[in-house]
Design a protein around this nucleic acid. Structure first.
Lengths: 345, 345
DNA sequence: ATTTATTACTAAATCGTTTTATTAAATTTA
DNA sequence: TAAATTTAATAAAACGATTTAGTAATAAAT
């Protein structure tokens, strides 16, 4: 029911052919100055806007990009989306958003729908289930530019943008060690994605460098993708940790959700933070300062991740030859020390 | 560069005509069972997906809807978007998202871009600046279905979905009164949108019904759209409130941001909550429980708002005659009592 | 045996662009 | 003046789907 006028309408009104009008509007050298002015004037007066679908069909381009995120209902993800949207708006690209809800099948379905819909490129933050990237590689080989952000994988070769998870985790752990905590537990999620594995590695390296032996009992992997069971799972994990003969005195949590949930559960179970147990975690919540106790966090430059990911994608789209050397950009994190990790007096 | 197979490819492979293939795929009665099975099998095997642009061009529909939000980087908005996305995914509509960043001009530009892009309908949560809806009314008259969500206005006649702000505010205020607070201040934002005005009215009505005289000194309106100046503005407002000869003993905050910011600032200024001053506010943060102190909130069914708004829009799209009587749906809010509003012992 | 219905399929138009190939007229060159 | 070039336009094909209007071939009805 789009009542916009078409090239045909302009052509008829000015007694020209459709192709002349089309060319006049794109300022082609094949059209005389006088005709151009006439067409332009008429088009402006009648608010001519090219039909995106017709143009897209003809050119095989849509000037829109697909974004698949695990879940938009997540502070950190929303911040990255904000960055993506900023960059795309500035460059006149439209954003089509879909959620995988951490389900691999859903993610695949979304990507296929987007591809069929004619997106010019894809930004994706893979679901925690995703280990098989062959479906993405196929599309990539069919010519679809793909950029991974936040959660990376070695199974696909393309531009990637995230933070330096290893270093962030290293610094978080080191911060605890420097504050006198040596018995440091680690809560992570059970996925193969870089986000998780590298944070685990950073934790281990920091312990090693400080001469603290690694204790596997102190590490728990949870399924953060299922909100319904997470509370229970986390409660069990924390219960087990606190029941160990060698009870940990600090926890480093590897994700946003784990960090705040952990705080909640520790409090609910009557553990005092940081007196009984200290806490530092990856989190981008704006409320870290006003939590009880205020939460020490590793903060990620979320907006910048989004902007950069979008930038990398648009550069891939406009210059196909750029696919010769892909780069992985890792932005630095920032340790924000608050009450939850201060050495108890 | 979309290398998907087309109807033509299937037709050629099976020695059929394009129209037969098209009809077979839509399960038309005009096609024999055997042929249908063949086509279906081939299509599935070769991952046929209809070209969205071609279909859109033919049907004059894009099966995509535009969503303009003030800012995606906002818990409550992200939750509503989640609901919108859910419903649209279920009904095979794509979501094109844009942010107004609370700027009227940006909002107008976004809407025009979306319209030109061929969306089938528009979901919009107007910027706080928006008082002039004539540009939307124009598009509506050109045939674009429009649904307002969260922030409503009487200046445009269409489907609208939000919560019962009046009632929510009434209950929040009443809750404070029932808990023994009579000197209740009110923090709101300076906009003409229903969200703000109705919450103000609900606050006033609750006071009136309890026989408490309305005191204009206790009401402050802030510009929440500018994150840079908000902290300072809020600090000034709270400072003024606490310096009154008749100092309020409770505050009812009207928005998510005001609620958490207010908590932050009250704590920073050394006011004990709820001993010195109680607090209850509209907020949908998942962290209300774990704030210091835990925050009493009026919670909105954000997901449901999104789902319903999307549903109303799709019904408008599929049934144009439905534009004869528009409805406004107001969902109930839920008061969640936590520590910040408990009567001090 | 002829007409009528039904079944299973196809050709071609259409949506609104872009673009290749063509053409007619005007201008320049030889 | 005839040939070659430039200029300014146009016709028509293409993109990939849906759909209208048919067409054969078979089955049913008269």
């Amino acid at each position: 029911m789009n009542t916009n006028i078409t090239l045909r309408d302009i052509a008829k009104a000015l007694n020209l052919s459709i192709s002349t009008v089309s060319r006049a509007l794109t300022d082609s050298y094949q059209i005389g100055e006088k005709t151009k002015q006439e067409v332009l004037a008429y088009a402006k007066e009648h608010h001519y806007v090219p039909n995106r679908m017709a143009r897209g069909l003809k050119e095989g381009k849509s000037r829109s990009i697909g974004v698949v995120v695990c879940s938009i209902d997540n502070n950190f993800m929303a911040q990255m989306l904000d960055g993506i949207d900023q960059y795309c708006s500035e460059h006149d690209y439209q954003l089509i958003m879909m959620q995988s809800k951490e389900l691999f099948e859903q993610e695949k379905a979304n990507v296929n729908l987007l591809y069929a819909g004619g997106i010019d490129g894809l930004l994706i933050c893979p679901s925690y289930q995703t280990t098989d990237f062959s479906y993405l590689i196929n599309l990539q080989e069919s010519g679809l530019p793909v950029v991974l952000f936040d959660r990376l994988s070695n199974h696909i070769d393309t531009h990637k943008v995230a933070v330096d998870n290893f270093k962030g985790a290293y610094e978080a752990t080191q911060h605890l060690i420097n504050n006198g905590y040596h018995a440091i537990a680690h809560l992570n999620w059970n996925t193969q994605l870089s986000t998780a594995t590298e944070r685990f590695e950073g934790y281990k390296k920091a312990l090693k460098d400080a001469g603290i032996p690694f204790n596997n009992d102190w590490v728990k992997f949870c399924d953060t993708s299922n909100a319904a069971t997470l509370d229970e799972e986390l409660e069990t994990a924390i219960g087990e940790l606190m029941a160990l003969k060698q009870v940990p005195r600090a926890i480093f949590t590897a994700t946003d959700l784990l960090s705040t949930k952990c705080l909640e559960i520790l409090r609910k179970c009557g553990h005092r933070i940081p007196e009984d147990i200290a806490l530092v975690g990856f989190s981008n919540t704006d409320l870290a300062e006003v939590l009880n106790p205020s939460l020490s966090t590793i903060r990620q430059p979320s907006l910048e991740i989004g902007r950069l990911a979008a930038k990398q994608l648009l550069s891939l789209i406009s210059d196909r030859r750029a696919t010769e050397h892909f780069e992985t950009i890792l932005l630095p994190t920032e340790l924000q020390v608050r009450a939850s990790s201060q050495k108890s007096k």
